[in-house]
Simulated assay, not measured.
Amino acid sequence: MSTYLQLVVLFGSLSLMSFGGGNAVLPEMHLRAVHQHRWLTDGQFADLFSISQTTPGPSILIVGMVGYAAGLPVGGVLGGILGGVIATVAMVVPAASLVYAITLFWQRAEQSRWRLAVEKGLAPLTVGLILASALVMSRAADHDWRTYLLTAVCTVIFVRTSINPLVVVAIAGVIGYFGIV
């Protein structure tokens, strides 16, 4: 049962810090799931992240997969499914409850100066959290100079050009498939 309690504590707390979406808390999720609890390896975490980003649906699909991996040793497939459900509920319910409560108050403070200040302050916070996520994921997925170079080239293409990101991802996938990186 301690694994399930650890999932509730981890994802319940991450839920309340996830400004900008679930990907904003990836560094902390990675630290806890890989280095502290050892539910996954770096490579497994990077793989789960990739899968969760390529499937349709919300960006927090990785939460259910991490919960599944954590629950597998506890109770096999059923333990994994229970871990996935617990992790997902723990990630969604606290944030949803907080958003609901704040929304009631936020609507009444529409013209307040501090509301505008809070909104402007959350933008750089969110950008910083997402950049930290990108750094953690590149470290988890990249293991030699070639993969770091591919990540850097793709990032420059994303930032500097209007090429469809799917084309860049497809090309990078082909490069990886043929073992060039």
Rank of each mutant, 00 (worst) to 15 (best):
F49N: 01
F158R: 10
H143P: 07
L149K: 05
I102A: 15
V159E: 09
A46W: 04
D47F: 07
R139A: 10
S133I: 10
M17R: 07
P124E: 03
W114I: 13
P56S: 10
P124C: 05
G64H: 00
A33Y: 05
T55R: 05
G71W: 01
T55D: 07
G121E: 08
S2F: 08
W106I: 04
L40Q: 09
V167M: 03
V63D: 02
W145K: 11
V167P: 00
A109F: 11
I171D: 01
D42L: 10
T3N: 08
A152G: 11
T88A: 08
L78Y: 07
M29F: 06
V63C: 07
V25S: 06
A172E: 01
L26P: 02
L150I: 12
I86K: 02
G173L: 01
G76T: 13
G128T: 10
G57N: 07
V85T: 12
L150T: 12
L150A: 14
L14C: 06
I81F: 11
Y4C: 11
L61R: 00
P94Y: 04
Q36V: 15
K120R: 13
H37S: 12
V159Q: 13
R160N: 08
E119F: 06
A96M: 15
G67A: 11
G57V: 12
M1Q: 15
A33E: 07
Y4D: 08
L40A: 05
F49K: 00
T161E: 14
V8P: 09
G79R: 03
